[in-house]
Computed example of a mutant assay.
Amino acid sequence: MADPVIRNPVPSLLRSLMTDHLDPGYAAASATRSKPPGRFDTVVLILGVVLVGCVFGVALAQAAGFSDQSGSDTLMRVRDADSRAASLESDRNSLRDEVQAARAAALQDDSGGASVLSSLEQLEAAAGAERGAGPGIVVTISEPPTPSDLSDVSKNARRSSEAAVLDRDLQSVVNSLWVCGAEAVSVNDVRIGPGVTIRQAGGAMLVDNRPVFSPYTISAIGPLNRMQAQFSVSDAYLRMSGLEQLYDIGFDVSAAEALEVPASSVRTVRSATQVGEP
């Protein structure tokens, strides 16, 4: 009788792949994880969480303190710079008055000097290099008030930045006042003269490269009745009235019997050509 055939007791590779889906190592790892953590492991985990929380808390506190200190230092430097600028401007005005008084005392004694002094005064008046005073009108333009409901931004959607009053709005009003007969104009006590620009840089409004803030007060000295009549029908008036209705911009025009505007900054003349020369 033939000997029985001895078969391999180990299942074939194909059967093993079809029936044993997990490697034995995975089963061992799963069994290890399923064990409940011991008391020591729990204490170590709690201490680790507390330590990480303390580190983050100290870091946030230091960052907040640094931010507050940096903001305070910046604000203090800005205020100091404003104070120094105001003091220097006051000194400059005092020295200018002294120079003008000394010049007048030196030139007004003879006829030739008086003629030169008169010509200088006319040129300074045309250049806005001396203070102006007289009747005129005051145009006040201000940013819209902050809405109580921040979700309602329909009246403040003129552009992407926060400012609703643009530099071209102030330019339009100033140019219209010149056309209406203004003899001297200032914006927030900054005299408008030759070479003076009104422009925006980022979110700041600059007049003669000096920052000015809302409300913008435009003072114009000139014939009161004529300026009132012509400005009320000008394109600038209609423009600002429309912006007032659309974007809630503040716009007000008032008459003044006595206005004062400061002198403009006198720039150094590098070159000049007499009118009429080729």
Score class of each variant (00 low, 15 high):
Met1Cys: 13
Asp3Leu: 12
Val5Asp: 15
Asn8Val: 09
Val10Ala: 14
Asp23Ser: 13
Pro24His: 02
Ala29Met: 10
Ser30Ala: 14
Gly38Leu: 05
Val43Arg: 08
Leu45Met: 10
Leu47Phe: 12
Gly48Cys: 11
Ser67Val: 05
Ser67Phe: 08
Gln69Glu: 11
Gln69Asp: 12
Ser70Arg: 09
Asp73Ser: 13
Thr74Ala: 06
Asp91Glu: 15
Asn93Leu: 15
Val99Arg: 11
Gln100Ala: 15
Ala101Pro: 02
Asp110Trp: 04
Gly113Thr: 07
Ala114Pro: 10
Ser115Tyr: 04
Val116Pro: 03
Ser119Asp: 12
Glu121His: 01
Leu123His: 04
Glu124Leu: 04
Ala125Glu: 10
Pro135Trp: 01
Thr140Ala: 06
Asp149Leu: 06
Leu150Thr: 12
Asp152Gly: 07
Lys155Trp: 06
Ser161Asp: 14
Ala164Ser: 11
Asp167Val: 06
Arg168His: 13
Leu170Glu: 11
Ser176Glu: 06
Leu177Gln: 01
Cys180Glu: 05
Gly181Gln: 07
Ala184Tyr: 00
Val196Glu: 02
Ile198Leu: 04
Gln200Ser: 15
Tyr216Thr: 07
Thr217Leu: 07
Ile221Cys: 06
Ile221Tyr: 01
Gln228Arg: 11
Ser234Trp: 03
Leu238Trp: 11
Leu238Val: 13
Ile249Ala: 02
Val253Met: 06
Val253Tyr: 00
Val253Glu: 05
Pro262Val: 01
Arg270Cys: 04
Thr273Ile: 01
Gln274Trp: 00
Val275Thr: 07
